[in-house]
Every structure is written in structure tokens, then in C-alpha cells.
């Protein structure tokens, strides 16, 4: 099968590659760009660990061919920390014990990022709804929800 060209911005950097059309976005990020923060689990859209933001919207990177992201802006977990400083969300996950094995964490951070970008003051129900899209088999979700609530408060304080 003939290769296709893809031009995509990932975490603010422009990349151009020639790839097979069947290459999934999650494999493109990990293998072509060596951004290993995006994890791969079930590869059929159920577990959510590959979730990234494509043009600001949470997207399963295992259900999008990389060629479809041509012209798009992709954000992964690597975009969150700046100059070695954890983002408020990451800091809140750390402080609230919002992760144990860490496998689901990058995607949890990305769905929470989308949530807070759409609504800086989400209800408990909204937070639960957002993180329920991803499977976590360690935490029982309570500490993840607490982490997001803490991040909401941290961001509010930071702005005052």
C-alpha cells in the first residue's frame, strides 16, 4: 500500500511524516514521534488510556488513523508540564494520590484538561462523567475525582 503524507502539530511542534494509512494515531505518537506518554491498552476504544486532544477535543488515539489528523493540532500528556513544573492538574493528582500504577493517568489528565477548558467550575457529576470514560483499575476513581476538584480550586486561587 502506498504511503501517505501527514502534517500535524503535536504539542505545538509541526511534524511531517510519510506513513502507512493504517497507522493509528497512538502508534504514530509513540513510534514516529517517540512520545511515549500516550499509552495503548485495548486498541478498540473501550479502556481510554490512549485518549489525547485533537483540535481541543478528547479523542481515542487508537480509533483515529494518523493520516486523519493531517492538518490537526494534537495535544498529549507531554504538553502539560512547563519548564519542569507540573501543571495544576498534575500537581493535584500527585497530592491526592490520584494514581497508583499510573497506566491510566496520562489519559485521565487529558480528559480532565478538556473538561476544565470547557468549564472551569464543573459539578461533581460532570467530573465523574468525564473520568468515567477511562478505565482505572487501581484507585476506585475517588482520588482521581478529588484530584480534579483540587485542581479546580488551585486554578481558581491562581487566578485571584
Amino acid at each position: 500500500m502506498s504511503a501517505v503524507k501527514v502534517n500535524v502539530r503535536v504539542n505545538g511542534t509541526a511534524y511531517a511524516r510519510e506513513i502507512e494509512p493504517r497507522m493509528l494515531l497512538c502508534d504514530f505518537l509513540r513510534e514516529e514521534l517517540e512520545l511515549k506518554g500516550t499509552h495503548i491498552g485495548c486498541e478498540h476504544g473501550v479502556c481510554g488510556v490512549c485518549t489525547v486532544l485533537v483540535d481541543g477535543e478528547s479523542t481515542r488515539a487508537c480509533l483515529l488513523f494518523a493520516v486523519q489528523a493531517d492538518g490537526a493540532e494534537v495535544r498529549t500528556v507531554e504538553s502539560l508540564a512547563k519548564d519542569g513544573q507540573l501543571s495544576p492538574l498534575q500537581q493535584a493528582f500527585r497530592e491526592n494520590h490520584g494514581l497508583q500504577c499510573g497506566f491510566c493517568t496520562p489519559a485521565m489528565l487529558m480528559v480532565a484538561t478538556e473538561l476544565l477548558e470547557h468549564d472551569p467550575d464543573p459539578s461533581l457529576e460532570d467530573i465523574r462523567e468525564a473520568v468515567s470514560s477511562n478505565l482505572c483499575r487501581c484507585t476506585g476513581y475517588f482520588n482521581i475525582v478529588d484530584a480534579v476538584r483540587t485542581a479546580v480550586a488551585m486554578i481558581k486561587e491562581g487566578k485571584q
Binding site: L24, E43, G45, C62, L63, L64, F65, V67, Q68
Partner: peptide
């Protein structure tokens, strides 16, 4: 036809479907 891909791509990843041509209508 590839639209959102949320049903088609899982079936392709699981090799339940292997179409020779994908027409991306996005």
C-alpha cells in the same frame, strides 16, 4: 466508508473487517 470510526476502526483493529479501501468522508 469511514466517518467517525468509533465502530468501524475497532472492528478493523480486531481484524473482524479488513476492507481493501477506506473512503474517509470526514
Amino acid at each position: 466508508i469511514l466517518a467517525g470510526g468509533q465502530s468501524l476502526v475497532p472492528m478493523m483493529n480486531l481484524r473482524m473487517l479488513h476492507p481493501a479501501v477506506i473512503i474517509d468522508i470526514n
